[in-house]
């Protein structure tokens, strides 16, 4: 491109001289791509500090991993985090950085009669690296979000419910791994204490397969409840699970198991001294 031929005007100096118009162009480009999700004012307040931090250290371009770039990196990370939380895609997030290059170069190209520019390579290299930093920070934020959602799901998916005075139930759904068992066990023990219950039913109707690890986790939970003076019944043992447990050779010892939650409830009611029978009065 003719206008970008070798000359004396370094692109960073050009950038400094035209800061205001480039800033406006950049925020407009970015705002156009983020319609609705984030206000123009917000976009501006996020982007302008990044731009100014970059202009403070033009002598350091394009070495983005150096100490002078610390502020820029921090601002970019913060920007990525906020985009990730607001539901922007990683591409959209990184594109905002690349839009800065477009803003600078299109401004530079507006003046074909002007001096040629130098340092475009370095500038471009820097923008690429900054884009990668943005991308990285974005991914890390998403990972944090996913981890915390998984933890929330874990807790949500293991409710301990009170079925009757003194009788709790834990309906387990899905795969029972170590982390989950820990959550279940803690929740159950906690509820046993707070509700002063002596009985608990662990229902595994929703557990797809019981292998030795799941079995061991179940046994541990029952033992822990026992130490607190509560008896557990395991219910919801479907035919295929029963056959698998037998083939594996897992023994539940003296732990009572029942095919259905209803059977388990009936037994537990009995054990707690309740008598369940049909009323003789006509309804």
């Amino acid at each position: 491109m003719k206008t970008l031929a070798d000359g004396g005007y370094d692109i960073s100096a050009f950038f400094l001289d035209h800061r205001d118009v480039i800033a406006r162009d950049w925020t407009q480009r970015v705002a156009k791509n983020s319609t609705g999700r984030i206000s123009a004012a917000e976009t501006q307040s996020e982007l302008l500090p990044i731009l100014d931090a970059l202009l403070k250290i033009v002598g350091e371009w394009p070495n983005v991993s150096g100490a002078p770039f610390e502020e820029v990196r921090a601002l970019l990370s913060e920007y990525s985090r906020s985009r990730a939380r607001n539901g922007f895609s990683p591409a959209e997030t990184a594109t905002a950085v690349f839009a800065l290059r477009d803003a600078v170069l299109s401004e530079a190209n507006k003046n074909p009669q002007g001096p040629g520019y130098t340092g475009i390579e370095r500038f471009s290299q820097m923008i690429d690296s900054l884009g990668l930093i943005t991308f990285d920070a974005y991914v890390r934020t998403r990972e944090t979000i996913i981890t915390s959602q998984t933890e929330q799901l874990l807790e949500l998916s293991t409710p301990v419910v009170k079925l009757w005075n003194g009788i709790l139930a834990v309906p387990l759904v899905g795969t029972l791994d170590s982390a989950r068992t820990q959550v279940v066990m803690e929740a159950l023990l906690q509820m046993l204490v707070s509700t002063e219950s002596q009985h608990a039913i662990i229902d595994i109707t929703g557990v797809p397969a019981v292998d030795t690890q799941v079995a061991q986790h179940l046994l541990k939970t029952v033992m822990a409840a026992r130490l607190m003076g509560a008896e557990c019944v395991i219910s919801g043992i479907r035919p295929q699970i029963a056959q698998t447990i037998v083939a594996l050779g897992v023994e539940f010892g003296d732990i009572v198991t029942k095919a259905s939650l209803a059977d388990a409830l009936q037994l537990t009611l009995q054990r707690s001294g309740f008598e369940v029978r049909k009323s003789e009065r006509k309804a």
């Binding site: 019981v210 292998d211 030795t212 295929q240 056959q243 698998t244």
Partner: peptide, 14 residues
Amino acid sequence: SIVDQTKIVTAVSE
């Protein structure tokens, strides 16, 4: 069958 599925899945898990 459902039983055989459960059996192979459990073996694979182990």
